[in-house]
C-alpha cells in the first residue's frame, strides 16, 4: 500500500500580486506523518486550504485519495483542522463533536465509541458538557483537533494541531498520531516546533510559497551538514537565496 494519497502538480495560489503558494509539487504516500514547516506566511495554511477546497487554486492541480480537488466522492474520508479555532464556542464539547459526527452521518454507536476515545486523548472527559467558551485556550484547541478526527478519517490535515498545548499532552498527541499511522492513516500537519518536526516521517520545508527542501528529518539534516532541523532549514533557506 504505497499509493500516494496527496498529489499536487505545480499547485499555485496567488492573492493579487502575492504568490502565497508557488508551483507546489507534493507526493505524500499513505501511512505517513508528513510535516510542513516554514516561517509565518510561507504558505502552509494556504496550501492546505486549497487542497481542502476552501480556496480555488490559481493554477496547477491537486488530487486527494485519487480524486481531483475539490473532492466530493472521498470527502467523508478526509479530516481537516483549521489553524483558527473553528469550533462553536456556544456549544458544549460534546455538542461540537456530535455536530461534526453528524456531518459525516456517523451512527450513534460509532460516535459514542469515538467520542469516548478522543475525549481521553485530549484529556477533556470531565469537561464533556462544558461550553467551549468556558474552556482555556489550549483546551479549545484540543476540542478542535478532536472534531477533525471524530469520523476516523484516513487522511487528515492538521494545521498547527499542537499550538498552545502543554508538553505532556503534546506527547500524548504524537503517540496518537503514531497510532493513526500504524492503522494506515495519513497525517499532514504543520508545526513551528522543531522537536515535533523531527518526529515526522517526511518534512517539507516551505519558504515564500516554495518548497525548498523535502525528505526525512535525518536526510535533511545530513544533506545540510546540520545537527538540528532548525539549522538544516536555515542552510536550505540560504541556499535558496543564492
Amino acid at each position: 500500500m504505497s499509493e500516494d494519497v496527496v498529489v499536487t502538480n505545480a499547485l499555485t495560489k496567488r492573492f493579487g500580486e502575492l504568490v502565497a503558494v508557488s508551483s507546489l509539487d507534493l507526493k505524500i504516500p499513505r501511512g505517513v506523518v508528513y510535516g510542513l514547516i516554514g516561517p509565518n506566511g510561507s504558505g502552509k495554511t494556504t496550501a492546505i486550504k486549497v487542497m481542502n477546497g476552501l480556496l480555488r487554486s490559481t493554477s496547477g492541480s491537486a488530487r486527494l485519495l485519487g480524486e481531483e480537488v475539490p473532492v466530493k466522492e472521498v470527502i467523508h474520508r478526509i479530516g481537516y483542522m483549521p489553524q483558527e479555532m473553528a469550533i462553536y464556542t456556544d456549544l458544549t464539547v460534546h455538542e461540537n463533536l456530535e455536530l461534526f459526527a453528524g456531518m459525516y452521518s456517523m451512527s450513534r454507536s460509532a460516535f459514542e465509541g469515538a467520542e469516548k476515545d478522543l475525549l481521553e486523548i485530549i484529556d477533556l472527559a470531565e469537561r464533556r458538557d462544558s461550553l467551549v467558551a468556558t474552556l482555556s485556550g489550549g483546551m479549545k484547541h484540543r476540542v478542535s483537533l478532536a472534531c477533525a478526527l471524530v469520523h476516523d478519517p484516513e487522511l487528515v490535515f492538521l494545521d498547527e494541531p499542537t499550538v498552545g498545548v502543554d508538553p505532556e499532552l503534546r506527547k500524548g498527541f504524537w503517540d496518537y498520531f503514531a497510532g493513526l499511522k500504524r492503522a494506515g492513516k495519513t497525517v499532514v500537519l504543520t508545526t513551528h516546533y522543531m522537536d515535533e518536526a523531527v518526529r515526522c516521517d517526511i518534512v517539507g520545508m516551505m519558504r515564500l510559497g516554495e518548497m525548498i527542501a523535502e525528505g526525512t528529518p535525518d536526510s535533511l539534516m545530513k544533506a545540510a551538514g546540520a545537527t538540528t532541523l532548525e539549522d538544516a532549514f536555515l542552510a536550505n533557506a540560504k541556499e535558496a537565496d543564492e
Binding site: G53, H76, Y80, I87, Y88
Partner: peptide
C-alpha cells in the same frame, strides 16, 4: 468570521 462555515464546508454537508 469564526471559520466554522469554512470548516463545515470541508465536510460532506
Amino acid at each position: 468570521t469564526n471559520g466554522t462555515l469554512d470548516r463545515l464546508l470541508t465536510t460532506p454537508v
